[in-house]
Design a protein around this nucleic acid. Structure first.
Length: 256
DNA sequence: ATGGCTACGATCCGTAGA
């Protein structure tokens, strides 16, 4: 069994105790992290190593930051896109157990029409270009991330209220689909077609307690991995208790 | 009562998240 996780931890240093407990509880083979919110020098390397994990980090002060954790060695690591823009730490690619893996933190976009919204749409096109040129979609590859897009209305607690809004607008959904159409399938949707399953809940307004959430975090996989994906789930319990991230981990298992 | 948060880097509030 090969277990992979994607998780936006909303600051790895604020979440380190929860992350270590999660690693001990789930014993994943690969963890794709987003929103480290720290530079590499502030990354809790020793604690991660002591937990039995290698780490490949693309850090940034205060914002963004992505990493790959793995129980096996991580090789062929590249940070950012091949188009040379390293302004924001949002994408890291590597190889674990002979399988290509990547962690992506898609820009939030702030509001439809805002400058950050156009940056988000451009970034999604650059992600598509990166995947098209740097990843062989005929081979085993898994892309985990906080995509900051709810692909369908059933991924939204109140589709009417969110219609056309940031994270749900048609241009965002289409840009995301163009990237996934290269050959990536959603491991969660492979096993569960129901609505009402979310990976993020607003800290405000009792969002979690009222299950007012969005499903915006996914583990996407190419056909050779989808064919051996035995299960996928959202670890909703990780959102409970004191000091959670606003995102829950998404977990998928593969029989290699 | 229809709002209720969290983290960061710098203060004792502004920015950002989604």
């Amino acid at each position: 069994m090969w277990k992979v996780v994607t998780w936006n931890v909303n600051s790895i240093n604020a979440r380190i105790d929860r992350l270590l407990a999660f690693l001990q509880r789930e014993v994943p083979d690969v963890v794709l992290l987003q929103e480290l919110k720290c530079e590499q020098v502030k990354f809790p390397q020793a604690a991660i190593e002591q937990a039995g994990y290698h780490a490949a980090v693309f850090g940034q002060k205060t914002y963004n930051g992505v990493a790959i954790l793995a129980r096996s060695a991580i090789s062929e690591v590249s940070q950012g896109f091949a188009d040379g823009d390293l302004d924001e730490a949002r994408f890291i690619l590597g190889t674990v157990n002979g399988i290509r893996v990547a962690s992506a933190y898609i820009p939030n976009g702030q509001a439809v029409g805002a400058e950050k919204y156009h940056y988000k749409l451009r970034w999604l096109e650059r992600l598509r270009a990166q995947l098209a040129t740097k990843v062989n979609m005929a081979e085993r590859f898994v892309l985990g991330g906080d995509f900051n897009v709810a692909p369908e209305d059933k991924d939204v607690h109140d589709p009417k209220a969110w219609e056309g809004q940031i994270l749900c607008s048609t241009p965002e959904r289409e840009a995301l689909k163009r990237a996934f159409d290269l050959g990536l399938g959603d491991t969660f949707r492979l096993h569960n077609q129901d609505g009402g399953h979310y990976s993020w809940w607003d800290y405000r307004m009792l969002g979690f307690q009222k299950n007012k959430g969005l499903r915006i975090d996914f583990l996407m996989a190419t056909a050779p991995l989808l064919g051996c994906c035995t299960g996928a789930r959202i670890d909703r319990d990780e959102r409970k208790g004191a000091g959670p991230s606003d995102h829950a981990p998404v977990i998928a298992e593969f029989k290699l």
